[in-house]
């Protein structure tokens, strides 16, 4: 037999089969393929290694690879399920899937909990909430008296920490979000409803075009 030259497209090491990713997420196969185009762009903006590094994530979010932001860090780390310091293609698709309008509300609530659980202890603690409020004030160039910050944090915490043990567990968080559904508003990206319509420029690839 002669040698067989494959025309399969070149994919990076972290590439996962779009069919499998589509089965696990609200995206269909062509949407996963379209998002791969976005992923390739993001993951090659600084280091072309098929993985999104934190600087690349910051560059995409803020047009500045050096702009640090507590919340962007938390989003990055929550995408980075393997905790190896980069976002791989499968991690990117699975996490974005949670932001899909059709994703289960439960998964959005749990993702938000993980974002706010800064030290990944399984609880949102009072100090973490205060740290986030202070970080946001800093980010927004707002100044509030220390007493006011303490009052806001205390009030929020007393409302959410229904067991009164000084920390918010995931059950308390779910109950708190059910009373305040706007808390997960930013967990839905309407764009993802129909990627191929909203972002036709992503849909340029096919197995043949890519080879």
């Amino acid at each position: 037999m002669g040698c067989f030259l494959s025309k399969r497209p070149k994919h990076t090491a972290g590439y996962e089969d779009p069919t499998l990713l589509a089965a696990e997420t609200p995206f269909n196969v062509s949407e996963v393929e379209a998002l791969y185009e976005l992923f390739k762009k993001l993951s090659s903006s600084i280091v072309d290694d098929g993985r999104i590094h934190k600087e690349e994530f910051q560059l995409a979010l803020f047009r500045n690879k050096n702009k640090r932001n507590l919340f962007a860090d938390r989003v990055f780390d929550t995408f980075d399920v393997k905790r190896n310091g980069v976002i791989e293609f499968g991690e990117f698709i699975r996490a974005l899937g949670i932001f899909h309008p059709n994703a289960p509300v439960e998964s959005k609530i749990e993702f938000a909990f993980r974002l706010y659980d800064l030290r990944q202890t399984g609880f949102i603690e009072r100090e973490e909430l205060k740290e986030m409020v202070l970080a946001l004030l800093h980010e927004s160039d707002l100044v509030l008296l220390e007493d006011v910050v303490e009052t806001i944090v205390d009030k929020t915490f007393s409302d959410a920490d229904t067991k009164g043990d000084g920390k918010i567990d995931v059950e308390e968080w779910k109950e708190f979000v059910s009373r305040n559904p706007s808390l997960i508003k930013n967990m839905t990206l309407p764009y993802l409803k129909d990627i191929t319509l909203a972002f036709p420029s992503f849909v340029v690839t096919s197995e043949v075009d890519d080879s």
């Binding site: 976005l38 993001l42 995409a60 979010l61 938390r74 409020v133 009030k155 808390l183 508003k185 930013n186």
Partner: peptide, 25 residues
């Protein structure tokens, strides 16, 4: 009205606005 710290964070932080990822295209 009760000032909810989580609402303040989620609605105001640019770090949560993933739409920028798409706008980079």
């Amino acid at each position: 009205k009760f000032f909810n710290a989580f609402e303040f964070i989620s609605s105001m932080s640019s770090g949560f606005d993933l739409s920028s990822l798409f706008e980079s295209k």
